[in-house]
Computed example of a mutant assay.
Amino acid sequence: MRVDLFDFALPQENIALRPAVPRDSARLLNASSSGHLSDHLVTDLPQLLSPKDILVFNDTKVIPAQLEGRRGEAKIGATLHKRVDLRRWQAFVRNAKRLKIDDVVEFGDGVSARAEEKFDDGSFLLHFLGSEPVEVLLGRAGTMPLPPYIASKRDIDARDVEDYQTMFAREKGAVAAPTAALHFTDRLIAALTEAGIGQETLTLHVGAGTFLPVKVDETDDHKMHSEWGRIEPEVADRLNRARQNGGRVIAVGTTSLRLLESATGEDGIIQPFEGDTDIFITPGYKFRAIDGLMTNFHLPKSTLFMLVSALMGLDTMQAAYAHAIAGGYRFYSYGDSSLLLP
């Protein structure tokens, strides 16, 4: 399909630079594949779902993966993307033309890394020097990797350290938050539990590739970056039993959805999973694992807008986004949310 089919105009004033306070006070657009749209708050979620439904959250934890440094006089920025081993990370590099293989970048506070390899997509393999764990080094020199559409408009500050982390964050490794889950609070989880709606977690370490624009004209020509994920056997078993008993599996965020779909065969059975996935979902894809999705509003021509269009239909999503824009919904990572039920 042509990528420009997934384009739309978004006014700058619809882009959220801070999250709603409290988190669960954000707006929620409920959409069905029949085209019906209704406006709610995230706190209405227990009334919009049914007993036996299960929400699936991503428990990845965002690390301070944004680094600013120098190679000699040249300023070099690095956004870590994917861990390769204990000391090596694949990273997208700003001012990459000034970086060559074997160059060492000094990030300050005793943190440095050698460029060991350059990949076809322009990213580098960075080897962090010294003996301290990389997590310790990032804690000293790194900052929260806010999306470019936020970081370009204001400075990253102490509030973001908490704001850009979900209540489920446990497993360190993401360089972007699974933002649909940012809306959840203890009181909302309690209300969902009281309503008979279950919760499960999996892990997908979201990479910086989620922010990259699609630069090709046809979706078939786009190459997705891989991300590491895990679904525990007992989680897969409980999700399969829930569906067999008439419940629905509702992914909270496109990251949870992508991992669930990666782990599910044509028989619709969710399998335990541990490894990389580069699944790219576009219209025409047959969903196997999920029965609905809660997700924030995505960028024009992005792989994530393609994903929601595959789930609901392009016409439905174009109408939903037009409704959201006209109604003043707040878009992107810190914005409002949607509940998509095919």
Rank of each mutant, 00 (worst) to 15 (best):
Q12I: 11
V105E: 02
K215S: 09
E116D: 12
F124G: 07
G108L: 14
L80I: 10
Q318W: 05
V42M: 15
G198H: 03
D102H: 13
L146Y: 07
V175Y: 13
R87F: 11
P145E: 08
E13K: 14
P11Q: 11
E162P: 00
V105H: 01
V111R: 01
E274M: 10
E274K: 14
G108N: 12
L182P: 00
D163S: 08
K223T: 12
A26F: 08
Q199Y: 00
A96T: 08
L45G: 08
P178V: 14
P342Y: 11
A115W: 08
R27S: 06
G196M: 00
G247K: 09
G196N: 04
A141C: 00
V3Y: 12
G108D: 14
L37A: 01
V216T: 15
A115P: 05
L17V: 10
E73H: 10
L304D: 04
P147G: 14
G142E: 13
I325D: 06
K52Y: 03
L192V: 03
T43G: 02
G139K: 05
L10R: 09
W89T: 10
L48Y: 08
P272R: 12
D278L: 06
P46Q: 10
L311K: 01
I101M: 11
G327D: 15
D39W: 01
I63L: 09
A91H: 08
E227V: 08
S256E: 09
Q244A: 15
G246W: 11
Y329C: 07
F124P: 02
R23Q: 04
L37R: 11
R23W: 06
D336S: 07
V105C: 01
R230D: 02
V235Q: 11
H225K: 05
A289R: 04
R238D: 05
P283T: 09
T277R: 07
S50R: 12
A320V: 09
T79G: 04
L314T: 15
D121C: 13
R23P: 07
D121N: 12
